[in-house]
């Protein structure tokens, strides 16, 4: 972790050859993504956060200027519509932090549009099914 091999040794490839190497190319090729995660301290919980941290091979080391800020150049990453389903007992303050997190992610993960949906654990299945149904249309 944090070795930058995917930028400077084997560009575009993670040197840790586990499941992640099957996931980030699929994310890159998709024009829609749905993240479903429990929220912890206003951010993604550990499973989703691990996945997002393992996805940096889809970017180059090199910097570009985007919306007046420095960000990385993306490799072949399609612009995406993202639906983020955040669940758990989420306070107003946590919601605010999470919304700002996703707004930041949008710049680094090539979201052209995104929606954040907050729900409880008991309503989660229903919420996911409803959103997936919208995509199928």
């Amino acid at each position: 972790m944090g070795c930058f091999g995917c930028w400077t040794k084997t560009p575009g490839k993670c040197v840790i050859r586990d499941d992640a190497v099957n996931v980030y190319p699929k994310i890159a090729k998709s024009d829609g993504v749905m993240h479903v995660s429990r929220i912890k301290y206003g951010g993604y919980d550990t499973v989703m956060k691990t996945m997002l941290e393992r996805a940096i091979p889809v970017q180059q080391a090199f910097i570009r200027i985007l919306h007046g800020e420095t960000h990385h150049v993306q490799r072949e990453v399609l612009p995406k519509k993202a639906v983020i389903i955040a669940y758990g007992e989420i306070s107003d303050e946590e919601r605010d932090v999470f919304q700002r997190l996703v707004a930041r992610n949008a710049r680094n993960m090539n979201f052209e549009q995104y929606r954040v949906i907050f729900t409880s654990e008991s309503q989660l299945d229903e919420t996911v099914q409803r959103e997936v149904a919208k995509w199928k249309k």
Binding site: P11, G12, Y24, P25, V58, F62, R75, E76
Partner: peptide, 12 residues
């Protein structure tokens, strides 16, 4: 690794 190699657009 050259700059050009680092700039590859290919993932995996």
């Amino acid at each position: 690794v050259t700059k050009e190699q680092m700039e590859t657009m290919q993932i995996e």
